[in-house]
């Protein structure tokens, strides 16, 4: 029974991690940029959800209608203004640019809204479903379901629609895509936009169960990287599964080994994946990690 509960907690946690990471895998996989500000995007989106709730009384789940489009635009904007000028530069330059962006965003949040923890008050934040002795947190279950739906939806989008195919083409081989007449720059903007929009969605799903403060980006950002590499760049299902795996690892390590070491375990898995199968569990493009982006 204890084990069952641990597994369920792990899966639910994994759903959250998956939700947060799917946006990153899109950006990383297509635009080939490690967005070190990913966590900060999430943080800003969570603040947006918070303010919508406080100023307009909007329920976090309803705010999805706003956060998704707003962050799509934000993503396009960041790609166009920040990344595009340095698109051809070595990947290391892009790292520092997004690192700088992350610094700016988290400290802007600190300046504007100070360090207080903000959470939204909703009646269902600790709602649970009880099945015999097992408890499943409702907001987490909702996040889990959304994550699954997003994975399915994005997969269909990427494989069945024209735009999706273009995105995959660019992700697999930029030069060839260019030669085929695909407007690569536009695709980059769209991909970044979609990635950011997913972050916006994640924020709306997270606010009922968490709270936001300027440095929360650091936590989730790092986990997102682990998940994305585990699952394979640009692979939605990979990100979903990767998130679940990391959630389970954390829960099991925490329950059976030592709560103080639970993060160590998934970092070690991360390192092992990087060393043994850097293209991830379910890779999409060729093993670009060993050839350099």
């Amino acid at each position: 029974m204890y084990l069952m509960q641990v597994l369920i907690s792990g899966l639910m946690l994994g759903g959250i991690y998956a939700m947060v990471s799917m946006g990153l895998t899109m950006i990383f996989g297509v635009v080939r940029v490690i967005n070190f500000a990913h966590g900060e995007f999430l943080m800003i989106a969570m603040y947006l959800v918070y303010w919508l709730n406080v100023l307009l009384g909007m329920d976090p789940y309803v705010s999805i209608l706003i956060t998704v489009p707003v962050f799509f635009v934000f993503g396009v904007f960041v790609q166009r203004i920040l990344i595009q000028p340095i698109q051809e530069s070595p990947a290391t330059i892009k790292i520092f640019s997004t690192l700088g962006l992350g610094l700016v965003l988290s400290n802007l949040a600190l300046m504007l809204w100070d360090a207080d923890y903000r959470s939204v008050k909703v009646s269902y934040s600790t709602a649970v479903i009880n099945i015999s002795e097992l408890s499943i947190s409702v907001p987490r279950l909702i996040a889990f379901i959304f994550a699954l739906l997003v994975a399915v939806f994005m997969y269909s989008f990427l494989t069945k629609t024209d735009l999706g195919k273009q995105i995959r083409a660019v992700s697999q081989n930029r030069q060839a895509a260019l030669l085929m007449g695909i407007n690569v720059r536009k695709i980059y903007m769209i991909a970044f936009g979609i990635g950011s929009a997913l972050v916006g969605l994640a924020a709306s799903l997270l606010m009922p169960m968490y709270f936001v403060y300027p440095s929360i980006g650091l936590l989730f950002g790092l986990i997102a990287f682990v998940v994305v590499v585990l699952g394979g760049l640009g692979n939605m299902y990979g990100a979903f599964l990767g998130g679940l795996i990391i959630g389970l690892v954390e829960a099991i390590a925490g329950a059976y080994i030592d709560p103080a070491l639970k993060e160590v375990f998934y970092f070690i898995i991360f390192i092992l994946i990087l060393l043994l199968k850097p293209s991830g569990l379910i890779s999409m493009g060729r093993g670009s990690e060993e050839v350099g982006l």
């Binding site: 204890y2 829960a251 925490g254 329950a255 709560p259």
Partner: peptide, 20 residues
């Protein structure tokens, strides 16, 4: 004794440990 990191995103393992 169950020490944990204050910055954790999830403390269900602490609770489960304590509960058991």
């Amino acid at each position: 004794n169950i020490p944990y990191a204050a910055t954790s995103v999830d403390l269900s393992s602490v609770i489960l440990d304590a509960k058991s």
